[in-house]
Amino acid sequence: MYYWRDLADVPEGFGPAVVTIGNFDGVHRGHQSVLQQLVEAARERDAAAVVISFEPHPAQVHRPESAPELIMGLQDRVETLADTGIDGLLMMHYTLDLAAQTPEEFVRSVLVDGLRAKAVVIGHDVRFGRGNSGDLSTMQALGNQLGFDVIVIDDFGSNLQGKTAAAGERRCSSTWVREALVAGDVTTAARILGRPHRMRGEVVHGAARGRALGFPTANLAPESTGFIPADGIYAGWLIDSSQVRWPAAISVGSNPTFEGVSRQVEAHVIDRPLEEIDVFDLYGQTVIVEFVRRLRGMVAYRGPEALIDQMRLDVAQTRTVLSTEQRTYG
């Protein structure tokens, strides 16, 4: 997949292309349905399938105080989009200057001159250009004027079965993913996304309480990317920098058994003898943590002994959950 961070990076003469535009936070099943239709339309026209997206999220520029927390970081968004089979991704730096372009200026400079668009794939509710003044009829008029087709996707999304959402059904959306994660329902989030929700970050030193209790953990740095789900204990996976997947019991939150512990995400890799811990040194590595199922909420225990007993139960339950995990989500 071609990956461009600026319109100037697109090679002169690139194209023709079939293009779609969106933020694609989460790259959930609804997004995947759109991108599948994009690729099909491009293949029919002997053109490249190209996605235009934005970094940072436009809401972070226009209303940072109320912008939604992003489901995934930039690296995961790029990698997941690449897996959909598209040919190119133009990740435009979103600024007030870009937002000030009229619909015609944006379409001429980016779609026509930059990408030589044969067609544009959009939904009925598309908005673009200065003050979101451009809509579907605007795009269709510009297509007639400038020589590209406009392919309208009726629903612009799908339901949890991956089918086009019918009337009365909830279509897959980034908002729905966030709602599920706020509730700690990573199972529903995975069904909307089509894969487990993940975070990515560097492993940093913590207070070493887990090691002292016999359950050493890999602590993610505070600046890690990905939506942090509700506090609790989860069964999941830790993927190290060599792309090795390790089964893990994951803790999210501040441990209420100990005072003065700030909120954090930490993963205990299960079934590794204590004598191997020094060999399994993740400090400084950038790792991925995937959330498969929430096991319980956070509870304050009466001392370390009760906590250790519960952690043993958590590890046993994690082992059971992961041994039966479905690798497809539907």
Rank of each mutant, 00 (worst) to 15 (best):
W246Q: 05
G260Q: 07
R296Y: 01
R296Q: 02
F14P: 00
L274T: 09
E223M: 10
V287W: 14
R198L: 15
G284Y: 13
S262G: 14
P11H: 12
I153W: 03
A48F: 14
E44T: 09
W176A: 15
Q101R: 12
G168F: 12
R312Y: 00
M298G: 03
G260P: 00
M1C: 06
R77A: 00
A42G: 07
L282T: 06
Q37A: 15
F258M: 05
V19T: 04
R293N: 02
A117G: 08
V289E: 04
I308L: 02
A183Y: 00
T320M: 11
I288G: 00
T318K: 04
E104T: 05
V61H: 05
D97W: 02
L282A: 01
T138W: 02
L98C: 09
R130L: 07
V107K: 01
H28M: 10
G194V: 01
S254W: 03
H205C: 03
E290V: 08
A218F: 11
E105H: 03
R245V: 09
L136C: 03
L38K: 07
V51F: 07
E305W: 00
F148H: 11
Y283M: 06
E65Y: 08
E55N: 11
S224P: 02
I277H: 12
D240E: 12
E179H: 07
K118A: 13
G226V: 12
G143K: 01
L7A: 14
M298L: 14
D76I: 10
S174W: 02
L322T: 02
A248D: 06
F14C: 01
P229Q: 13
I153D: 15
R108L: 14
A212P: 04
H268C: 06
S158H: 07
P216K: 09
L181K: 09
T225M: 09
Q326N: 15
F14T: 02
V150T: 15
A167Y: 11
P273H: 09
A119T: 07
V261F: 06
V150S: 14
Q75P: 04
I52S: 06
G297Y: 00
F106Q: 08
E259Y: 08
F106V: 10
V265R: 08
G134W: 01
